[in-house]
Structures are given as C-alpha cells and as structure tokens.
C-alpha cells in the first residue's frame, strides 16, 4: 500500500508540473504547424507570468491577471510574427531576442514598480486561483485504490489544470477537424498551394501566432497565479525549452504532446522525489542526470533513434509570393 501511496503522490505532482508544459507545447504546436518556428515560448511564458502577477497584485483580481497575461503574451507573439512573417527575418533570431528582452524587462520593471527584488507582492485569496474539489472527494478518500485516485489525482486541481488537459482534444479538433486547422497545417507544409487557393498565407500565420500567444498566456498565468502566489524572477526556469523539446518529442501531434509533457513532468517530479535515495540495482542516480534526461531523450529522438521526428516542411521559411 505504501508503494501505491507514493505513486499517487508522484503522479499528483507530475500533473502539477506538467500543466505549463502542456499549455506551452500546444502553443508551439499551433505556430510550428503553421510554419513559424518559435523558440520564444520561454519568453512569452515569463512575460505572461509577470503580467499576471503584477496586475493581480494591483487589482486584487485573478481574472484581470489572467487577461493581462494573455494580452502581453499575444503582444510578444505579434512582435515575433511581425519580425518573422512580415519582415521575413530569421525566426530563430527573433525568438532568442524575445527571450532576452522579457528576461531583462520583467526584472527591471518588477523592481521599479514593486521594489521586492524582482518579485511581485504575494497574492491573497481572491487574487489567485483556488483548487477545485470534486463533490464527495473527502468522503471516498479512504476507499482503497479508487479513493485516492479520485480524491488526489482527479480532484483538487486548479481550473487552469483542467483547462490545459481539455485543450489537448480541443487543439486536436481545431487542427484536424476544422477548415481553419486544415489550412493552418497546409500553410506549414506548402504555403504556395494555400496561396494558389486564394487564402492569405500571411493572415493565416498571424492567426496561428495569436493562438500561440493565448496559450502561452495561460501557461504564464498558471505559474504565477496558481502554482505559486506571485511572480518570482526567472520563474519559467527553462520550462519553455522543455515544452519545445516535448513538442518535438511528440512529433508535432496534440495527444503525443500531452504524453510527452506528462513524461517530462514525471521525470521532474521523480528527480525531486529521488533526491538522495538510492535505487535498487543502479544505486544512487545523480540528480543532475535526472534533470538532464528530458534534453538527452529529445536529442536521441531527434537523431532518429526512437522513430523519426519530421518537422513541418515549410517551418522556418518566410513566405515570399513570387520569385
């Protein structure tokens, strides 16, 4: 029973750390499927987290915080879009630039406005998300096996957590079952064909970039309004890059994205859990190895040793009408 208890705790924290990864990786899915590479997920998430923390602290309203997060993230997305779609600049360079601008300005502005060393003030009850308890969760907690699964794994998460996992089938439906999704995928594979059909490549890509901004906004808001009470400088701590790795690991498919995020989240939770405890057979695994594992796995996958990850064909290439 003890093993089962440990497993439930582990899976519960897996879900908690996976949420921002799921949001950000789905965000990347939309732009990359439309042919715009985005390594600025990290920056957008960080900017959104800061906006959410700052606005929620000032207005004492969690919803204003969420809206601010989405607005800032969409704005950053549009800058990336302007540079890489309209100006046909290098998409990687633009993403790198956004990451740096956000990393610096969140600290500078946070310090100037709140004077707490780059943090935003700690948020009270009304200014942050509360967990949702399913009906009867406490009553059946003591039922063996099913009780903990219902009470700890399914119930007791934030609204954004449920939204994140709902976004997975929703993204699938949008990308594979709607006209917009079909065109969006087409524009990432063969923009010339889409243009010939009389559909604006530019406008489609902008819409994909905006979708990405909205989802990154949720990811950032989750970090500063749900997971912790307020913004802490550099709080994304590479999650945007892990999400990017998950997206590639998932071969740009929505359900695989969720599984990859859960896997990377599980590794993260396991690394914290295993700190200092020796494993059977292998002995003590260095924490650093566990931390590096998502990146190592992605490299191995990219090298084609676990199936082949084929990116959208027109990814990273700005669209030029004639020539």
């Amino acid at each position: 029973m003890d093993f089962f208890h440990v497993l439930v705790v582990l899976l519960e924290s897996t879900i908690r750390v996976s949420v921002p990864l799921v949001f950000a990786a789905l965000a990347g899915l939309f732009t990359e499927r439309a042919g715009v590479f985005d390594i600025g997920l990290e920056g957008k998430m960080l900017g959104a987290a800061f906006a959410a923390g700052a606005v929620a602290a000032v207005t004492q309203s969690v919803w204003m915080g969420l809206i601010a997060a989405i607005l800032i993230s969409v704005l950053l997305s549009l800058i990336h879009g302007y540079a890489s779609i309209t100006q046909r600049g290098n998409q990687i360079v633009s993403g790198v630039a956004i990451n740096f601008i956000v990393a610096g300005s969140t600290v500078i502005l946070g310090q100037a406005w709140f004077r707490q060393g780059g943090r935003t003030p700690a948020l009270g009850e009304g200014a942050r998300f509360q967990t949702i308890n399913f009906p009867g969760a406490d009553a059946i907690r003591h039922v063996p096996v099913l009780g903990p699964i219902y009470a700890d794994l399914l119930s007791g998460h934030f609204l954004l957590t449920y939204l994140a996992f709902a976004m997975v089938p929703a993204s699938w439906w949008i990308l594979y079952r709607t006209r917009f999704g079909l065109r969006l995928r087409a524009v990432g594979e063969n923009p010339g064909a889409v243009d010939t059909a009389g559909i604006s490549v530019i406008w489609l890509r902008y819409r994909a970039v905006i979708c990405c901004g909205i989802l990154c906004g949720f990811a950032g808001a989750y970090l500063s309004l749900a997971m912790t009470a307020g913004f802490v400088k550099g709080m994304t701590a590479g999650k945007g890059y892990i999400a990017l790795a998950a997206l590639i690991f998932a071969k740009w498919r929505p359900f695989n994205v969720m599984l990859a995020c859960l896997l990377f989240g599980f590794l993260d939770a396991l690394a914290i859990r295993l700190q200092g405890t020796p494993l059977p057979l292998v002995g003590q695994v260095p924490v650093q190895l566990m931390q590096a594992l998502p990146y190592i796995l992605t490299v191995i996958l990219l090298a084609g040793f676990i199936g082949k990850a084929i990116p959208p064909k027109a990814g990273g290439v700005p669209y030029v009408k004639e020539r």
Binding site: I79, A83, S84, Q87, G89, N90, Q91, V93, S94, V96, A97, I98, N99, F100, I101, V102, A103, G104
Partner: peptide
C-alpha cells in the same frame, strides 16, 4: 542585448 538581437538580427 535582446533589442540588439531583434533590430540588428530579425528586423
């Protein structure tokens, strides 16, 4: 640094 990368690079 980010602004230089943005204006001298992407834009």
């Amino acid at each position: 640094q980010g602004l230089v990368i943005l204006f001298a690079g992407a834009l």
